[in-house]
Design a protein around this nucleic acid. Structure first.
Length: 472
RNA sequence: GGCCCUAUCGUCUAGUCUGGUCUAGGACGCCAGGUUUUCAUCCUGGUAACCCGGGUUCGAAUCCCGGUGGGGCUACCA
């Protein structure tokens, strides 16, 4: 199959999760079918355009490996094409100029509302064409001349047969008075000209699809295949959008969600492989993807599940690579004085405990700063001050003999040789608290291992233990 | 309001087309137990759903009809 698809966002803000999912499915479909993936920027509403949005779209797509083959193509640079096609439609009677004032339209709407019937433009300007006032006047729009009778239907690849009576369709605006086309028009022209075979987009476009089809037919063009994707909704089951506040992909990336986790997660929103496999790389997704496996009902964006995917990928990622993503989250402004080995050890220790990378900041503070804690914390079960002191002295003595860069295994071995396998808690709890100041923390051996990557690691550790002894 | 879409555990979903193997499976979450020096990881177990009402049928989550719930669209936005 020769497939050509496109992802056609409007540059009105940061790319959000729903947009990324649409891009992903288009990408997967293209790759799966040896097709072409076009990036098209639908910037026909200049008033809503946000600076930097295009850059954000491109950057986001790149970080997720959703590389496009053609584009970005900007609709705002193709005005002439749209005008030509609009003229053709007007000439053949499938569209017409409308010079109605905003007031008249508002009035029409008000009446429709009062009579509890849906608003549809009354084709006034079609029936009463304004006398040509020469080329000067441009206060008109071009409207689609939707037939008043008949039924328009299409076979959606996801939803199956959808049909609507033309009588429920409005003579929508095709070209605005500022000369820019609206989505419903530019979309059709471009999809045809770019030879798009499969239009894969959000479910919210189902209601406007019949109008698009009518347009294709007016031009005598072949209608592409449509595959509408179920909506992504929030906890309240409302459409996930920029208004949902936290839907920007960039925000998730900044919080320390790994791209592969986000991708894997959103792939499963509205689609699943029909097997019990949950973890998929991008390549595996390409192999498994099939529009037939796309669901029809809206999917709730569940952060808990994203967290699970993310923690999985965090645990799985090689340390050196993980460090690149996590670097910025360490609780120091500059990590350059610290050897990579030290930082990697911290990640190794913490990675099993993270839902997102940004959490290392709040978790690993004691590696960079002497902890504050109450001396009561040093007591495990009913240990007395004397016992704690004695325990810490033992730890101190053992650690004193350690060399730079000693391994966790060796540390553990040495400790257990010294004290036997008996009452580990009485020795290890106070040591752990002295090191971290925390009730719950990673084990002391791995913490020591990390510190012994530092030139002054031994000194720091010994100092902390002494401080604990002094507290008693 | 009108048009359109949709309906399986709290959430993502398998199963629906081709009715029985479904006392409805998996995953997340949650709960309990095990491993363990605390926490986490890990392992084991548990919790929890076919929207409602009719009909067809020996038999319905699955087919039909009617409700109801949820959502989207209804812009000179996309």
């Amino acid at each position: 199959m020769v497939a050509t698809v496109r992802f056609a966002p409007s540059p009105t803000g940061l790319l959000h999760i729903g947009g990324l999912r649409t891009a992903l499915f288009n990408f997967l479909f293209a790759r799966k079918n040896n097709g072409k993936f076009i990036l098209r920027i639908e910037d026909t509403d200049k008033s809503r355009e946000v600076r930097g949005a295009v850059e954000n779209i491109k950057e986001t797509l790149r970080t997720f490996g959703l590389n496009w083959d053609v584009g970005p193509i900007f609709q705002s640079e193709r005005l002439k094409t749209y005008h030509e096609h609009a003229s053709r439609l007007v000439a053949q009677g499938d569209a017409y100029k409308c010079g109605c004032s905003e007031e008249r339209i508002a009035d029409l709407k008000k009446h429709a509302q009062a009579e509890k019937r849906p608003f549809r433009y009354d084709k006034h300007c079609l029936k009463n064409p304004a006398p040509s006032t020469g080329s000067g006047s441009n206060h008109f729009v071009i409207r689609q001349n939707v037939p008043e009778e008949g039924i328009t239907s299409f076979e959606d690849l996801v939803y199956g047969k959808i049909q609507v009576a033309n009588s429920t369709l409005d003579d929508g605006i095709l070209v605005k008075s500022d000369g820019y086309p609206v989505y419903n028009f530019a979309n059709v022209i471009d999809d045809h000209l770019m030879e798009i075979t499969h239009v894969i987009r959000g479910e919210e476009f189902i209601p406007s699809t019949p109008k698009h089809i009518l347009l294709y037919k007016s031009f005598g063009w072949q209608v592409p295949q449509f595959a509408h994707l179920p909506l992504l909704v929030d906890k309240k089951r409302q459409k996930l959008s920029k208004r949902s506040g936290d839907a920007a992909v960039k925000e998730y990336v900044e919080k320390g969600y790994l791209p592969e986790a986000i991708l894997n997660f959103i792939a499963f929103l509205g689609w699943n492989p029909k097997t019990e496999q949950e973890i998929f790389s991008l390549d595996e997704l390409i192999k498994a993807f099939d529009l037939e496996k796309v669901n029809k009902s809206a999917a709730v964006f569940d952060l808990e599940k994203l967290n699970w995917f993310n923690s999985h990928y965090i645990k799985e990622k090689p340390l050196s690579e993980l460090l690149k993503y996590a670097q910025r989250y360490f609780p120091v402004t500059d990590t350059s004085p610290y050897p990579e080995e030290f930082l990697e050890k911290i990640l190794e220790i913490e990675k099993g405990r993270l839902n997102k990378l940004s959490e290392v900041g709040e978790r690993a503070g004691y590696f960079f700063q002497e902890p504050e804690y109450n001396k009561d914390l040093l007591s495990w079960k009913d240990m007395t001050g004397e016992e704690i002191k004695k325990s810490l002295e033992v730890s101190k003595k053992i650690i004193f003999n350690f060399q730079f860069s000693i391994s966790k295994k060796e540390i553990e071995k040495t400790f257990f040789q010294e004290i036997g396998e008996g009452d580990k808690g009485t020795l290890l709890w106070p040591l752990r608290v002295a090191l971290t100041g925390l009730r719950a923390s990673p084990g002391p051996f791995e913490i020591l291992e990390a510190f012994f990557c530092l030139q002054n690691g031994k000194e720091t550790v010994l100092k902390r233990i002494q401080k604990a002894i002094d507290k008693i």
